[in-house]
Design a protein around this nucleic acid. Structure first.
Lengths: 147, 147
DNA sequence: AATGAAATTGTATAAAT
DNA sequence: ATTTATACAATTTCATT
């Protein structure tokens, strides 16, 4: 697909605030609301826009800890883990990666006790390493046009 | 703040599709649209809802590679890096963490060449380790009520 | 804190360029 | 592919409970 300058402007608006009306986006980018609506629909249909999400603060809803946990899966345990991990409410993001560890996860937890019980769940799948997140330096940065 | 059952229902809707109208959310959760509107506004004001973002597919817009890069900063180089990293378009997420490495980043890249030049930029700040993402297992999972 | 009603604004569709 | 016109729907404000 060709993502022209206008579509990038629309994507910028939607990445900043997905709840903007088509009319408001139209005002900001200089086209009518039906034009915005059509372009958004096309980008959705093409899978370029995967969805729209409210960003909920884990801290504000009671998750006091965030951790990055890597897993080096035991023989034959990677596939079962890939299924199981989808069921964990604590796992916000999970990637399969190259290298010594097979998995890296971003996890939200209530407290130390919760962290302990979460890590305990992992021992049947492999060796885990946990690093506590001290601060978010960059958070869900907008995807920009590559030059 | 008290997040009652109704607010969690609203948060669930907004995490699934942030562009749902208040009227539609109201229909789904069983209240009027002004009630939805007021509750959302309050959750925004309290910082419980941090914003609404369109999820753009990095792959579909031309970023063929995703990587997890950790950085062990040189003495006196962590602070400068924390500022610099905000300016990198490639860095989607960046966390300061405990442990041997100081930083973990999720990075999107066009190709190997782009990866190489990105890593080259890091050498003045510290020692980096790169792991290529093979697949997204869990992607921006919804934050749920803790029991 | 939620509803119902009125005014404003936004959306969706179709016709035209 | 975008605009304008129009009918329908949603949002906002406010009075009411």
């Amino acid at each position: 697909m060709d993502i022209d300058r206008l579509n990038w402007k629309i994507l910028k608006c939607l990445q900043e605030n997905a709840r903007l009306s088509n009319a408001e986006i139209g005002r900001r980018v200089g086209v009518s609301s039906p034009a915005v609506s059509e372009r958004i629909k096309k980008m959705e249909d093409l899978g370029l826009i995967e969805g729209y999400k409210a960003i909920v603060s884990p801290f504000e809803v009671g998750y006091q800890l965030k951790a990055i946990i890597t897993l080096r899966a035991f023989m034959g345990k990677l596939k079962p883990f890939l299924e199981k991990v989808k069921t964990y409410d604590e796992v916000v993001n999970c990637y399969r990666i190259t290298g010594d560890e097979n998995i890296v996860m971003e996890v939200v937890l209530k407290n130390q006790k919760h962290l302990e019980s979460f890590i305990d769940q992992l021992i049947i799948y492999g060796e885990s390493k946990t690093q506590i997140v001290l601060s978010d330096v960059v958070k869900q940065k907008e995807i920009k046009s590559l030059k």
